[in-house]
């Protein structure tokens, strides 16, 4: 589900910000991996907290 969210959100943001296929592909991949990796890292960092 996180992946679906990341793909859809990244696609919209990419088409808002970038022009041209090459720039869009690059920006999309960076944004999507940033979403996924930061979500996982954030989840692990929050793991010890009780709230």
């Amino acid at each position: 589900m996180m992946l679906v969210f990341s793909v859809l959100t990244s696609l919209v943001l990419t088409f808002l910000v970038k022009q041209g296929a090459r720039a869009r592909v690059r920006y999309f991949l960076i944004l999507m991996f940033a979403f996924v990796i930061l979500s996982v890292v954030g989840g692990w960092l929050m793991y010890p907290f009780p709230f």
């Binding site: 969210f5 959100t9 696609l11 919209v12 088409f15 808002l16």
Partner: peptide, 12 residues
């Protein structure tokens, strides 16, 4: 852009 926005936002 129209196609991507329609598909993604509606799908969400």
């Amino acid at each position: 852009r129209a196609g991507v926005f329609f598909c993604c936002i509606t799908a969400m």
